[in-house]
């Protein structure tokens, strides 16, 4: 079970959080101008990569705030957490096969 450092409340058990998928996928400003393929890419397609992933979590049983986590999907190591709107952190490059 992960120990997630909420940028507001501090370290809390994974049970207090909900997962929100990959981060930095911005909702298109003018969806009508997108092709079906482009829209489907926004709604459905995620690379599901092995290595450090920037992802969103929400502290649903705590402060109810959304934030971003840089987490290695292989080792589960959390490299950084940062608030919504903050700059992406520098994260180590992973060279998993």
């Amino acid at each position: 079970m992960l120990l997630i450092p909420c940028p507001y409340c501090g370290e809390r058990d994974e049970t207090e959080f909900s997962y929100g998928g990959e981060a930095h996928i911005e909702r298109p400003k003018e969806p009508d101008k997108l092709s079906d393929a482009e829209w489907a890419d926004y709604v459905f397609m995620r690379p599901n990569s092995k290595g450090v992933l920037l992802e969103r979590w929400v502290h649903s049983h705590g402060c109810r705030r959304w934030f971003n986590v840089a987490r290695d999907t292989l080792t589960y190591k959390i490299h950084a957490v940062y608030k919504m709107g903050e700059k992406r952190p520098r994260v180590p490059k992973t060279d998993y096969v």
């Binding site: 909900s18 929100g20 911005e26 909702r27 969103r56 929400v58 959304w66 919504m84």
Partner: peptide, 13 residues
């Protein structure tokens, strides 16, 4: 409520 908060906090801050 989670749906509203998600959009408010992440898309329309």
């Amino acid at each position: 409520l989670a749906h509203l908060e998600e959009y408010i906090q992440t898309e329309w801050p």
